[in-house]
Design a protein around this nucleic acid. Structure first.
Length: 849
RNA sequence: GGGCGCGUAGCUCAGUGGGAGAGCACUCGCCUUACAAGCGAGGGGUCGCAGGUUCGAAACCUGCCGCGCCCA
């Protein structure tokens, strides 16, 4: 059912947005999933939110573009294809660069982008005609244009720096592609000389030491500054320098300095003009001459410790010693800080602008509290290493000439002619192209109608976990490339999807839920509703199968309610009858509908998806199904003009309710709406407008009273053990005083009370709030103990209320300082509770006599 | 080590100065003519702990305990 409906939506062109439309634009670009990826719960949550926003805006009359696509995931994709080659005993070098890249494209054509099909299952209303991929010609042109612009502005530079290096992927990584974990290691203290002892977790790097550093004001060691010490195992002599960044309280207060293998040491080296000795190759194998050459870094460590121990130089060892270790976010290999020549972006002016755009309110982060995290990142941004030693990606458009020339070519410039020119071997970080996504997908650098219409995008919906990875980069690039115009007006953040105990889903823990499995078993609507219902701004979402079942049950409830409506002639033909021709029940539900519509709008605008779902769930189930539908039964059975009006109102309420729910649960609402109204699709129906004229406080009060009376009678019946079907003869008194005189037939119908005849004998008398009396003839089967228990409980509640209210009112400070409405409210509460007490006491006394 | 955040019913979470809420789970009764994937009724919380501000604190402030995330 769902797939057929989806294809109809696509075929109907309902997802397509036109740049030539004169409607106001509303734009969302999808956070591009990885071309190697498949749909997981995180995507399902992210997409559900975006789809809900897009569908609502479409119904509101906006030219709504939700643009889909994927990124090329440089490292991940290259890994996949290299693994395939590996199975045939080949490496990418056997193929050569050109053939390898061809092979990757082939892989993409055959098995890339599985997620796109899965998005259809979820119901994503994306404009498939505008699907984009970061390696497409247009987007590649955007990348080259951006590179050239930044290069010409002096914001891109090439330098030898310590970077994060993955010895398995054989490429540089940016700071954010490194994940730190606390790992068990060892801390060994090595005596370099009688006076020089240093502690390190990386003994093997001592081969590359070029100094010892102490704090310049450390009195223990001041006299050593300027002297030299012999580096064990090497015979080299290295200086002792004073540097303020040494922590005198850590270990011995002396640190070894290995500028080529540690970022902090590199800086110390820069400050003191120390040489850098690289002692490992790109795979982490020791290259320093001597007995350790050829050993892997993890073999070299124990070997070197052993050699030092033999010389009696190991003076202390701590095992295990827990310390933070960086890992490649793609393959978990321990990152090796490595001195190498890379391309960088000078982020300071860009990050400043990215921070200011949020600070001055041009871009709003929802929820606002998360802006703090954003600032923490953009205000302390390091330069961004953008070169990767990969083949799959956008090759850096820089050419080197035979005479040492360096030329950056723009998108339309041909590479320099002549012999001896070669292009830079590296490609750009995938996030470089992802950073251009909000405008490269709209045609930039061309000035397309799409760019003019749909930029800036309206909202970016993504997880707080990539606020740094991606959002900050789009902000930097968008503001730079689009003349200071922000890439999006709002960033709506959500959290992670977790299991039913709030635990992170992980393969190793075995608690991963596949959204496609839920879609198969419970439907896309139930899956979406479960996620949306848990989606508080910026918060994680815990989900479980039971909750998805609950969502499925809700969809089923809607189906049954609509079935009831259709079986009873509900319709949406013609105008609503005027209020004067409507029953109180009809006026009440229309009033509630108006209020709920207003509230839903408010919550939607605030990206409060959980509140929208909660609101509509309770309105639909508690008010429409449990009360309104039940109340219409006697009205419809009575027939006549009133029944005709109710059929129209019932149709109206469901029509509007299905529209309100459509953004979150698109499939079933469309199915039911078409059946109810005969329309083409609810997708193109107008979003419900709030009609203030329908708000009817008097009707609401009346029905609230009716509900309280009915509930009290049901409570009595339940406590008395009267079966729901058992009809009881009863006399109702005081309805007029409570303002619900006209509703006696409704009340009798809902609680199955028959009219009192001539032989009526009351065996139980209830007095309800508002002086309503119910005298029931239970044919002597009254359970006195149960009734006494019930009344005693009610009395305790009323007495507690009286006590609390009195305490407040007896406090002169409260009466004197609290605002008058609050005091009045307490007075009212006291009066009500005191009246209840009198009533209940009378009933208890009657019971005893 | 630095920063951010959380601690409310059995579970997952709303609730930011004025009567402690929801879903699920639980108990009891029901095959009531839309729906047992349901209907009706009900039980359940010293709002982490200790101080403070206030007429009034789950909410605001301070400290402590416990947990999580990000960064180094």
């Amino acid at each position: 059912m769902e797939q057929r409906r989806y294809e109809q939506w696509v075929a109907g062109g309902h997802f397509h947005a036109s740049a030539e439309s004169d409607k106001p634009p509303y734009t969302i670009v999808i956070p591009p999933p990885n071309v190697t990826g498949s749909l997981h719960m995180g995507h399902a949550l992210d997409h559900t939110m975006q789809d809900a926003l897009a569908r609502r805006k479409r119904m509101q009359g906006y030219e709504t573009l939700w643009l889909p696509g994927m990124d090329h995931a440089g490292i991940a994709t290259q890994n996949v294809v290299e693994r395939q080659l590996g199975e045939q005993g080949l490496s990418r070098h056997d193929l050569g660069r050109e053939a390898f890249v061809e092979r990757v494209w082939q892989w993409k054509a055959e098995s890339g982008g599985a997620i796109l099909g899965q998005m259809r299952r979820l119901g994503d209303s994306v404009d498939w005609e505008r699907e984009r991929f970061t390696m497409d010609a247009g987007l590649s042109r955007a990348v080259h244009t951006m590179f050239k612009a930044l290069y010409d502005d002096g914001l891109i530079y090439r330098a030898e720096r310590i970077i994060n290096w993955c010895p398995r992927c054989l490429t540089a990584l940016s700071d954010i592609e490194v994940e730190h974990t606390d790992d068990d290691g060892e801390l060994v203290s090595i005596r370099y000389s009688d006076e020089v002892v240093v502690a390190t977790t990386r003994a093997e790097t001592m081969l590359g030491d070029t100094a010892i550093a102490v704090h310049p004001e450390d009195e223990r060691y001041q006299h050593l500054i300027g002297t030299e010490v012999e580096l064990p195992l090497t015979g080299r002599c290295i200086p002792i320098v004073g540097d303020e960044h040494v922590d005198p309280t850590f270990g011995t207060g002396m640190v070894k300095v290995t500028p080529a293998h540690d970022p902090n040491d590199f800086e110390i080296g820069q400050r003191h003009g120390l040489p850098s000795h690289t002692i490992m190759d790109e795979r982490g194998v020791i290259t320093a001459p001597g007995p350790f050459a050829g050993l892997d870094r993890y073999e070299a460590r124990p070997a070197i410790v052993a050699a030092l121990r033999e010389q009696g130089r190991i003076v202390a060892e701590k095992r295990p010693y827990t310390h933070a270790v960086g890992h490649c976010s793609r393959c978990r290999t321990t990152v090796e800080p490595r001195l190498s020549l890379q391309w960088f972006i000078n982020t300071s002016p860009l990050a400043k602008a990215a921070g200011d755009a949020v600070r001055d309110g041009r871009v709003r982060i929802e929820p606002a509290e998360l802006a703090k995290r954003y600032f923490a990142w953009v205000d302390n941004m390091h330069d961004w290493c953008i070169s990767r030693q990969l083949w799959w990606g956008h090759r850096i458009p820089v050419w080197y000439g035979p005479a040492g020339e360096v030329v950056c070519v723009g998108p339309d410039e041909t590479p320099p002619a002549g012999d001896g020119w070669r292009q830079d071997e590296d490609v750009l970080d995938t996030w470089f192209s992802s950073g251009l996504w909000p405008f490269s997908t709209l045609g930039w650098p061309e000035q397309t109608p799409e760019l003019a219409t749909f930029y800036p995008t309206s909202v970016l919906v993504t997880g707080y976990d990539i606020l740094f990875f991606w959002v900050a980069r789009m902000m930097m690039f968008g503001l730079y490339a689009m003349d200071g115009r922000q890439p999006f007006d709002v960033v709506a953040l959500h959290g992670m999807v977790r299991d039913e105990h709030g635990k992170k889903m992980s393969k190793s823990f075995g608690n991963v839920v596949d959204p496609l499995d839920w879609i198969d078993r419970f439907g896309a609507d139930a899956t979406r509703f479960t996620l949306a219902r848990g989606a508080n701004p910026g918060g994680d979402v815990a989900v479980s199968e039971e909750w998805c079942q609950g969502s499925r049950n809700f969809c089923n409830k809607l189906w049954n309610a609509t079935r009831f409506a259709l079986l009873n002639g509900a319709h949406t033909q013609g105008a609503l009858p005027p209020a004067t021709e409507l029953s109180t029940v009809d006026r009440w539900i229309l009033s509630r509908l108006a209020r709920v519509t207003a509230e839903a709008d408010e919550q939607f605008e605030a990206y409060e998806f959980a509140k929208v779902c909660d609101l509509l769930y309770h309105f639909a189930w508690d008010e429409v199904c449990d009360w309104y539908v039940e109340l219409t039964k006697p009205l419809l059975a009575a027939g006549g003009a009133a029944a005709d009006a109710t059929r129209r109102v019932l149709g109206e309420v469901l029509d509007q309710l299905l529209r309100l729910l459509h953004p979150v649960i698109p499939f079933i609402t469309d199915e039911l709406w078409i059946a109810l109204t005969g329309g083409e699709t609810v997708m193109t129906a107008a979003w419900p407008a709030v009609d203030q004229a329908l708000v009817d406080a008097a009707a609401e009060t009346e029905i609230a009273t009716l509900q309280r009376v009915v509930t009290e009678i049901r409570r009595f019946r339940s406590d008395q053990g009267l079966r729901p079907t058992q009809r009881v003869v009863a006399r109702l008194d005081g309805l007029a005083g409570a303002g619900i005189a006209g509703h006696e037939p409704l009340i009798r119908s809902l609680v199955r009370l028959d009219a009192a005849g001539t032989d009526f004998q009351a065996s139980a008398v209830l007095t309800l709030p508002g002086e309503v009396g119910v005298a029931l003839d239970t044919r002597g089967s009254i359970d006195v103990a149960a009734e006494r228990a019930r009344l005693t409980k009610d009395r305790a509640a009323a007495a507690k209320e009286v006590g609390q209210a009195r305490t407040k009112l007896d406090n002169p400070a409260f009466v004197g300082k609290a605002p008058e409405p609050v005091v009045q409210k307490i007075r009212d509460r006291l009066a009500t509770a005191e009246a209840d007490l009198v009533r209940i006491d009378a009933a208890l006394e009657a019971l005893s006599s």
